[in-house]
Design a protein around this nucleic acid. Sequence first.
DNA 1: AATAAGTCGTGATATTTTTCACAATTCAGT
DNA 2: ACTGAATTGTGAAAAATATCACGACTTATT
Lengths: 212, 212
Amino acid sequence: MEQNKIPQATAKRLPLYYRFLNNLNQQGKKRVSSKELSDAVKVDSATIRRDFSYFGALGKKGYGYNVEYLLGFFRSTLDQHEVTEVALIGVGNLGTAFLHYNFMKNNNIRITTAFDADTEKVGTDIGGVPVYDIRDLEEKLEDIKVAILTVPAVEAQVIADKLVEKGISGILNFTPARISVPKHIRVHHIDLAVELQALVYFLKHYSLDNPE
Amino acid sequence: MEQNKIPQATAKRLPLYYRFLNNLNQQGKKRVSSKELSDAVKVDSATIRRDFSYFGALGKKGYGYNVEYLLGFFRSTLDQHEVTEVALIGVGNLGTAFLHYNFMKNNNIRITTAFDADTEKVGTDIGGVPVYDIRDLEEKLEDIKVAILTVPAVEAQVIADKLVEKGISGILNFTPARISVPKHIRVHHIDLAVELQALVYFLKHYSLDNPE
DNA sequence: AATAAGTCGTGATATTTTTCACAATTCAGT
DNA sequence: ACTGAATTGTGAAAAATATCACGACTTATT
């Protein structure tokens, strides 16, 4: 289970590589070089080769990588052979965007359950996902290990506590609240206002050339 | 203009600090320590002190930081005294979520203009923002420097090209497409599927303890 | 006035991540 | 076969980031 020592920075890029390889494969492309990949995903080619090398020698010198082989390799590495079920808490605009997104296409992930407090929404189906009452969270969550949190900030901690109690493993938190959880639970924060403001800051202070 | 050598990692955390300080100030809190900040924003206290130190000695030893002073300092550093106008391209669910988000509260940012291809939406106001026809992009964009891109992936590059032509400086790209732009233009990618899949990957391979 | 507790700022160190640069290898063309 | 162009995998170096740990200072208390 414990894949030894893949750097976090690498792990975060894997889904990106995977998706692009998937596209290439669907286009019938048979081989690809780190340079081509680099142009497409905007990651330095040496970084890509280094990333791949953590999994062994996947390519051929002077040739590049076999798309199908590489794809197959990543599929198993990313555990794409079994569907990961995800719950979505908070069916506002952002939550609805997720419900309409088809994660099955490139990622073997499915949102199977959604929750909201709004009685207008409870009982409906959005993007094929049933929306339950947030008060039934504990009963309906079953053994889902991953949750997407798109609720108002003030609700975030209370709901996170409930998720923890039900045995969640990971939370993708879109609220501005930095939630507290036991340390064996992984939380990734995506803070839209912070991202926007950071971009504005970079433009004002790093504008002349574009590092990163 | 060129603030010397603030590390990027620090710059990305500034908006987070700023927002929390703003909250503290509104609560009437007068002082705060790096430890308290650390608990709230989940960043190591030494990292916070280091981050602040790039701007000089903002605190007092044995005391902590004066909330009002620190806030004022960040306000100028983050250029919060003048409103940054932003355009939003693509009024789907995700775009609509942005239009309803009040960036003026903690960030001095305002979405002033939105664009969409759907004639149902063109001409309406969403969250107080007028929605124009995407075909009028060139005419209506005026001198907005920042754009949020929430369109279908296939449209992304075409629209990015138009934005570039109109003199955009920064793009917050929510599409899975990695767009190509001249290198003086800054693009931040937020890729929802990648974030979700990366979280799932971390859970499977790093589950026992939670680094980061 | 002295003491204790709390806290910053930062030199030094550790860790993580990226990049360089090149030997080894492959492939395509002659 | 041979040659030249392309490309990997990786040791080594560089750069970026995070953390440790402590002297110096502030405040509160007695």
